[in-house]
């Protein structure tokens, strides 16, 4: 039965009972494996990309550029962080680790498909609604006008 298979997966799980305090150093990770380091690097790069997306969202002058920052940076950073944590989880190569990585890959794939799509839909809605982009020489005056048009 599939239930039994799933349970046996759970059985191989070495990170049981996440009691944050005492479980942290001794039992789970006595040292950093190569996979851990790879995962941490990936996740860090993802965080840097998200920093870019956040700053862009905060600083850019008009809707389209903000959307640009959000759509690209957000998607890529999500992918990198999820993959990084997938590698961190994989470090004991147990069956449940692989299952988790497959599930994480499903999320990665899902975000990779949906995030650009919703960004596109929003962009189109904004464009058809007449939100005007900033053009050369107009600085930010144009964006302020856009709401009133």
């Amino acid at each position: 039965m599939s239930m039994d298979v799933a349970d046996s997966f759970v059985g191989g799980f070495s990170l049981d009972l996440g009691f944050l305090a005492e479980a942290s150093v001794e039992t789970i990770h006595s040292g950093l494996s190569a996979l851990d380091v790879c995962g941490m690097i990936l996740a860090s790069v993802g965080l840097v990309f998200f920093l870019g997306a956040a700053v862009g969202l905060y600083r850019f002058p008009d809707f389209y550029t903000r959307m640009h920052a959000a759509g690209k940076g957000d998607t890529l950073s999500s992918l990198l962080i999820l993959l990084g944590f997938g590698l961190i989880t994989l470090d004991d190569f147990s069956m449940v680790g692989w299952l988790l990585v497959v599930k994480l890959l499903a999320i990665v794939l899902f975000i990779m498909l949906t995030s650009p799509t919703s960004t596109h839909a929003l962009m189109r809605a904004g464009f058809e609604d007449g939100v005007e982009p900033v053009t050369k020489g107009s600085s930010s005056k144009n964006t302020k006008k856009e709401g009133e048009s």
Binding site: M3, D4, D7, S8, V10, G11, G12, D16, L17
Partner: peptide, 14 residues
């Protein structure tokens, strides 16, 4: 968690 799992007999062996 796995060790309290009612179906954990399999798990324990593993």
């Amino acid at each position: 968690v796995a060790e309290h799992d009612p179906h954990g007999h399999h798990a324990e062996h593993q």
